[in-house]
Computed example of a mutant assay.
Amino acid sequence: MIRFCLSMVFLTLAAPVSAKEAPDDGFNPEALDAVKGLQRLDQRLHNIGYRLVHANIRFCDTKAARTGLLLNDVAQYADQKTARFALGFDSSIGITAVAPNSPADLVKLTPGDTLRAINTMSIDEITVDDPELLAEQPAYRRIAAINRMIEQALVENNVQLTVSQKGINRTVPIASVLTCPGQFQIRVSADRSASADGKLVRVSSRLAEYFLDDDEFAAVVAHELAHNLLKHRERLDAQKVNRGFFGQFGKSARRVKEAEIEADRLSVWLMANAGYDPQAAIRFWTRYGKEHGKGIFSASTHYRWKKRVQLFEEEIAKMAAVDPVDGKYAPPLLAIND
């Protein structure tokens, strides 16, 4: 997960640091609040994303090995000293979030743990000179290298992580589970937006703060995840859809709208399978639509909010008319891989 500069960004969600928590050696309380607030958003999105991809694995034709861990590198922050204190790390690399009931949770890894080694390799020995990492910004290359090393070790089913918990080192073997593919990122921004690029789901910090509960949060995440699971970017690229100004008209606009409709329809099935209330999609878009018109997007490529609500109602009715198997509803738009 990419972390943006927080030196001038103060999240309104963040609770103030109490006098007992605040250090007395010159930390900026507002900067501490910003880091802690972003971590809370990261944790919410990480947990929601993990639930969605884990619960719907049966219906995905591509699978990914997951531990439930979200790692962070303080090098991604302008004020590294403040970030390290706020996140609770003893060093530069640590755990930001652990998805409940994930393999990482089962071995009692916790947010604030500092990562010391992967198998026998110390974190300090991991190099970032691989050509494949050059596409990443310099501050993000080390965490990308670490995540890739863990992913490769998971394929071999041989991962031991050495972590420091409150200054005490422990080494734990960590397993993985197969999930649908999906990566999730909070993007620090003053706008309210969400997007999908084929692999990654991004939600802006301001939009994340707007949700009333995790069910509403999951409604938007499930919509963006649906785009990725349905390979909409690949399909639109193959159709040579124009994503620029002229993409708002004609054939391109029609094809983008078709993809948006599919993502809306699939999203409530993904939500229900993960234990989220699909009615939250109706609640969110009704509230947001009344306040902001068409919703997050104002282009002709998206339905107005009332039409979106109608789509959700239709899909929820379809779910009510079928019997789940082992508590899961088979989404009509996804292949079933039993």
Rank of each mutant, 00 (worst) to 15 (best):
A14F: 08
K240D: 02
P173W: 09
Q248M: 00
V155H: 15
C60G: 08
I95A: 12
L236V: 05
I57L: 10
A238H: 11
R142F: 10
Y77A: 05
A321R: 14
Q80I: 07
Y303T: 06
M121F: 00
L38F: 02
V177T: 05
G26Q: 11
A190Y: 09
N169G: 06
G289V: 09
Q80P: 01
A253W: 10
F284Q: 03
H227V: 09
L87D: 00
S300D: 15
Y329I: 05
H223N: 06
P16F: 07
D79N: 11
S122T: 14
A281N: 06
H46K: 01
D264T: 15
S18G: 14
Q165K: 10
A218K: 10
D61A: 04
I48H: 04
A153I: 01
G289A: 04
I48N: 00
A299F: 13
N228A: 08
D33L: 09
R142D: 01
A75G: 12
T127Q: 15
D42G: 05
A64C: 14
I126G: 02
E291N: 13
S195R: 09
V155T: 15
T286P: 02
T12I: 00
G275A: 13
G94D: 12
N47C: 03
I93T: 00
G94K: 11
L41I: 12
V256G: 11
S189F: 12
T12E: 15
N101C: 08
M121C: 02
I282F: 07
P103D: 13
R206A: 03
L109W: 00
D79E: 12
I2D: 05
R308P: 15
F284W: 01
N157I: 08
I95T: 07
I93Y: 05
D326K: 03
A218M: 07
A34V: 03
N158I: 12
T120R: 11
F184D: 07
V220K: 01
P181L: 08
D215I: 10
P23E: 11
S298A: 15
V268T: 15
L311F: 10
V220A: 02
D24R: 14
R308F: 11
L87Q: 04
N56Y: 00
F217N: 00
E315L: 07
E234L: 15
G37C: 08
L266E: 05
Y303R: 10
E258H: 10
D237P: 00
